[in-house]
Design a binder for these strands. Structure first.
Lengths: 334, 334
DNA sequence: TTGTAAGCGTTATCAC
DNA sequence: GTGATAACGCTTACAA
């Protein structure tokens, strides 16, 4: 795979590199059509394709953006990546996808490698461990946006669900259905802001409605065990708000394992309308979040920055939407 | 964000670029410790990070590989990407992820752009539309591997499930449970080899067991409708083999919508052990495929090629595994 | 042990 | 209308 360069094309077309470059970049201000034709056929004959690495070096632009997600196995991340890729592709950009696994060290490595590779911008679901790096980037005016989370005190445009609202809607829904004993269960990850906001909102709702809080959290692998203990101690709530998809998986495993009837024994409302919730038995009431739109908005913002438009670096909140299905019962009718 | 170059470091450390370069690449054969120290602190003070684009141009190596998947929303693709990223990361490589959407044109664009960006290798779930390009790449010795599919007549190392075996296992399982009327349902995509192999294996099994075939396929959006018609015509099979996750979603939507009892009215066995099948009601009997291992093997092979080891470009088959759960009933006991 | 200079494949400047 | 030439930031013979 010997690489053909612009010099080869120039030689073959009997013109200079400059002219070929002009041709390639469609700077046609007065180029004779014979020259064009000669270059065009030289390119075809040699099957030439320009080297973007050289181009990037010269242009200081790689047409590539970096994505660092917390965990690609999260359905939300997949949808975010998909939306970014769609948008980037429409602008002839590519995306480098990195998995930080919620590990600040891994994330830090990725950040510096991506910068070293001169990506034109970065879209990140940040862990809470690299605030200083992010702050430095933001201060230096580096094109950077956050998705799903933001970092207190670091002024970076952020695109995420209105988490407080999400929990309010879920809580209210259950409360109106007659529940007083409403639990909240979620995966404990690194004190990510998303989780904290949801948890805080939950506690506030409990206060507001004057019911006592029942928070279950811990890392994924401990979830079923915790549920088991609540069952043993007869302390399970009558209704449960589930924080995200991965937590939901664990909850449903426990539900199956301990033969809990949904919704008769336990009503469930889960955050994120992932596909199987629709046809699950019973189908699950969820709060949907517009992941694709969030990703698109974030990407659009990043491209605005890349194009010199400098929109305010604020936190953009997206509206959650309640989708009622079968997993929440009328508590009075029980 | 003015970029600091190796020249700046050299100036600051009062040595030449060469020496800095040697330092960076740990070519320490006799470098005085004072020089090292001076360079080291210059780097720290300037917060220097090498420009990989320049390095790549010189080295003709970008430390980046391209992945083109048919559809990232497929759970299988996500797991493949994850495994590739894990492996690549451990070798300090990055991955550019592209979504061809099963569209040969989009795929072709991606191939040429990735080549222009000088990625060191390509891992592809190929559409059947760019055989010539792939053949040309393979013939030119370009590092390329396929995952999940392969292309007849194009000699590229391919890593995929033993599809025939998968269907045999599924069919045999149902047959042994007493079913004679076994259908196969799958999403129709572009005549990808995976789908063809599974379909052919199904037909062969029908012949071998002397039962008549009932094939349902079409694009995703038509699946529920087709099931509806079979119900209306009372031509639904008693057991169904489902080709992949996206098809399964549609089947389960129909099951829910038309109130089909699983497994009493319909036994189901699905290909790919995606997470929710385990706690679904009823839990679903599946044929698992080792997606992570497939991705890892493919990546390992690619890296072997990159390292000059040239393993045979053969088709590597991975063993499916039957996981019995609740969605298949004993037909005699019905 | 360290430095000089050429080169990787482009594009930009400026001249002809 | 087209072409030298330098430059982007790095590596690598080869010199000193």
């Amino acid at each position: 795979m010997k690489h053909i360069t612009i010099t080869d094309v120039a030689r073959r077309a009997k013109v200079s590199k400059t002219t070929v470059s002009h041709y390639l970049n469609e700077r046609f201000t007065n180029m004779s059509s014979k020259t064009k034709a000669r270059i065009s056929s030289a390119i075809d004959e040699l099957n030439y394709s320009p080297n973007y690495v050289a181009k990037s070096l010269k242009n200081k632009k790689t047409m590539t953006i970096g994505i660092i997600v917390a965990n690609i196995l999260h359905n939300f991340s997949t949808r975010i990546i998909r939306s970014i890729e769609d948008y980037a592709n429409s602008r002839d950009y590519h995306v480098i996808v990195c998995n930080a696994d919620n590990d600040p060290l891994k994330e830090e490595d990725y950040i510096s490698m991506l910068l070293a590779k001169q990506v034109d911008g970065l879209i990140v679901i940040p862990t809470p461990g690299n605030n200083d790096e992010f702050k430095a980037l933001a201060d230096a005016g580096y094109p950077l946006v956050f998705v799903d989370r933001y970092i207190e005190g670091v002024c970076v445009p952020s695109f995420l669900l209105d988490n407080a609202r999400t929990i309010q809607i879920a809580f209210d829904h259950l409360f109106k259905k007659g529940f007083k004993h409403i639990g909240y269960i979620s995966q404990q990850v690194n004190d990510a802001v998303t989780r904290l906001e949801r948890r805080d909102a939950y506690i506030e709702e409990c206060l507001r409605h004057d019911v006592k809080a029942l928070l279950i959290d811990g890392d994924l692998s401990s979830i079923t065990e915790k549920i088991r203990e609540h069952i043993k101690n007869d302390s399970m709530p009558e209704a449960l708000i589930v924080g995200n998809d991965l937590t939901l998986f664990e909850v449903l495993k426990a539900v199956k394992q301990y033969n809990i009837n949904i919704p008769e024994e336990l009503s469930i409302i889960s955050v994120d309308n992932i596909e199987f919730t629709e046809f699950f038995n019973p189908s699950l009431t969820v709060i949907a979040q517009p992941a694709y739109d969030i990703g698109t908005a974030a990407t659009k913002h990043l491209f605005d920055v890349l194009n010199g438009i400098n929109p305010k670096p604020q936190v953009h909140r997206f509206e959650p939407e309640l989708i009622e299905r079968e997993s929440v019962i009328n508590h009075e009718h029980k």
